[in-house]
Amino acid sequence: MSQPELLSQDFELGFTYTRSTGPVVGRFLTDLRDRIIVGIKGSDGKVYVPPMEYDPVTAEELSEFVEVGQSGEVVSWCWVKEPRDSHPSAVPFAWALIKLDGADVPMVHVLRASAESEVSTGMRVTARWAEETRGFITDIDGFVAAGDES
């Protein structure tokens, strides 16, 4: 029996999905396009950003939108030294859990900083908008240290 040859090949599993958003996600994305950040009030009054469609505790359908601030506090973070191809940054950056002013529950997003030493838990950050907004989670290009948003 001859030795098997090893057959390997790169391939890409890819599709551009067409997602319908429903009213809650759609409202959040519409507001992002308009450079506004909204959350939603949970059954116990907690404000979730981005808005959840259903309450995580009671499973109730949620509908009471609340505009929240564009600045907030870093609840936790990590520093990505070697960004992956898929990451929204080619240079080292942070992921962060950010509790926006007026929100009770932090959200995950990008935190852009020039070095790990500039990021800390509890730091104040502000959303920096993409040049063009279109109604997508990346309309927020990322958060930056408060005062650095321009």
């Binding site: 999905y17 997602r19 958003t21 996600v25 994305l29 981005p50 936790s76 973070w77 990590c78 990505v80 992956r84 898929s86 990451h87 929204p88 992921w95 962060a96 859990l97 959200m107 995950v108 997003h109 990008v110 997508f136 989670i137 990346t138």
Partner: peptide, 17 residues
């Protein structure tokens, strides 16, 4: 699929936080 997957936040990073 609307808020997180399109950011491509990987599972290692979430665990790191």
């Amino acid at each position: 699929p609307y808020y997180l997957a399109p950011l491509w936040v990987d599972t290692v990073s979430l665990a790191a936080m």
